[in-house]
Write a protein that binds this DNA or RNA. Structure first.
Lengths: 333, 333
DNA sequence: AAAAGGCTTTAAAACGCTTGCATTTGTTTT
DNA sequence: AAAACAAATGCAAGCGTTTTAAAGCCTTTT
């Protein structure tokens, strides 16, 4: 009643060749006479042999699996990236170990360690706060890492993003051009560089360019969730803001619906531009105007970059910015 | 410039004990004198030793990773399950290899094979069409498998779901009770047992119970997507249906918005009950009435069940049905 | 104080594969 | 036909752990 697994040794015996030869044909090594290859292949087929990837990993020191640290799969922004990652991973014969971190430094560290323990060949990290702990772990391990849709303000780590500063600046400028003098900026944790540094800078730049004053009171920091969006509407309403740029789509829909349920009319009473152009933006009524970004591609390109890193290829530029845009739909005039 | 990894052997040498002893302390084996344990632990800490999970896997024939086959992470229904899966996997010290299949039999088979090759300890499968190929692979491999939110009409494979028949029956009955004589049934691929068998049966049962005739024309088969929902509204409108039960939330929102954009008023002109109660249902306006099901828990319970299977524990009932309900929100009277 | 046991600890054999090097076989040259 | 060289194949040493059987080391017993 044992596992009774078929090993490379069995194949070798049945085909009367050495393990090395079997290994070669399995790995597509060209140094095998066609006839032998055929013979071996037949035995493999007959015995239904499946190479053991674990043993392979131990011998070759390559696991062909990469770790993916994601804040929450349930968030459409991240899952869109994840899809891109998985697709190109598959394309390059890698598998993905997916681990949710909730952007919790503790969990991130924990997860990173077990990933390293599992000898992943590379890591894709999503999450906008890179603690010094993480940073030093990254540095210590020789495992290649790339950030996807996540910013490293030091630009030490390879990453793929859009130009958040420019994108937000353009979004805010659009709103200002529409006649809004008071534009709210609502996003997540401002301790995260993507918010407190990049997006906020874009916001300020647009204001400055239009000669408008920066007002602390128009900056709203909350969490990326639908509920948070609904909850923050009253606060925004209490100001004289007539428009908002929002850092997350779920948050934006929450805000939109919160306002709508409060009888605000879009885009006449209020305008919104959200940030991620996930499929949610087309599901709301009115549909949401948004900064567009190629979510799937960000994941895909990140993974592609990682393959190069794992392959020790020379990289020209490891801080990649993909193109963004602005689509105006129902929440802007 | 080499990898310069620290192995169990280094630790053993430094602590002047054997590898076996180090292995024991690492694995929490109680047969180690406290003094030795302490000594070893100190060395481990000093050398910053990290056990190599691959070598461990080879020696122990356990990888502490499970494979998760998912149609598409980007679909909120499945990602909700995935989150539940990952959380309890983590709880039990397992990692997840996540692979998208697009419910494509070819890819599923392919993925299943690489998962098996990687020696996963178990598999969670999401997908509603279990081809005979898959079924035989499942049977052949000794690797435990459980279906999450996916039905096996033969009940051969362990699974966790809700009672789709009863749920749909209740949903349709609710609509009938509201005065609808003509209720449309719109869902995905009818070749999938969950649709063509379970849900359809529930639909028919409700009709029969109310003495209403079953009309082929009120059954709409399409795909699970927002676009498909928008696209199918005209067809539904062309019938005399005044309500619909929909098999997927994205599809339902598409339908809702398609109808809304066509000036249909909910719930007066038309009623909808959707099936998954994902967070999308609260994002639409009006909010969608829905069958409720504990998505996260389905994943969580499936993973828990899998741990038992992997642990060779005796299972009382391997076809688990979790409770469902009906919430009436804005799309029903 | 020798015999019995119970803990600890060690030695070494797996685990299933890759890979550098040696060897054999086959093909050209001369 | 021998010498050279190239192509195929085989050998065997790892890869870093776990694990079983055996050996040591202490206490207890008697």
């Amino acid at each position: 009643m044992e596992k009774q697994t078929i090993t490379i040794y069995d194949v070798a015996r049945e085909a009367s060749v050495s393990m090395a030869t079997v290994s070669r044909v399995v790995n597509g090594n060209p140094n095998v006479k066609p006839a032998t290859r055929k013979k071996v292949l037949e035995v493999i087929d007959r015995l239904d042999y499946r190479p053991n990837a674990v043993a392979r990993g131990l011998a070759s020191k390559k696991t062909t699996t990469v770790g993916v640290i994601i804040p929450d799969v349930t968030n459409i922004y991240f899952s869109s990236l994840a899809r891109g990652i998985d697709d190109v991973a598959t394309m390059y014969k890698y598998n993905i170990i997916l681990a949710n971190s909730d952007e919790n430094g503790q969990k991130e560290l924990q997860v990173l360690n077990t990933l390293l323990t599992k000898q992943v060949d590379g890591i894709i990290f999503m999450g906008n706060q890179i603690s010094t702990n993480m940073r030093s772990e990254f540095a210590r391990s020789k495992t290649p890492i790339v950030l996807a849709g996540s910013v490293d303000s030091d630009e030490e780590i390879a990453s793929v993003n859009i130009d958040y500063i420019a994108a937000v600046e353009e979004a805010v400028s659009t709103l200002i051009r529409h006649g809004n003098k008071r534009v709210a900026f609502v996003t997540g944790n401002m301790d995260q560089p993507i918010n407190g540094l990049y997006r906020l800078n874009g916001y300020k730049k647009a204001l400055a360019k239009a000669g408008l004053p920066f007002d602390e009171k128009l900056v709203f920091e909350t969490e990326y969730s639908y509920k948070a969006g609904e909850a923050i509407w009253p606060e925004i309403k209490a100001t004289d803001a007539t428009a908002a740029v929002v850092g997350d789509d779920e948050l934006a829909i929450g805000l939109l619906n919160g306002a709508g349920d409060d009888n605000a009319k879009f885009p006449d009473d209020f305008e919104i531009i959200t940030s991620n152009d996930s499929k949610l933006t087309e599901m709301s009524r009115p549909k949401m105007s948004s900064i567009t970004q190629p979510l799937y591609d960000i994941g895909a390109v990140a993974m592609r970059l990682l393959t190069k890193l794992m392959n020790k290829e020379e990289i020209e530029n490891q801080t990649i910015l993909l193109p963004y845009g602005i689509v105006e739909r129902g929440t802007t005039k």
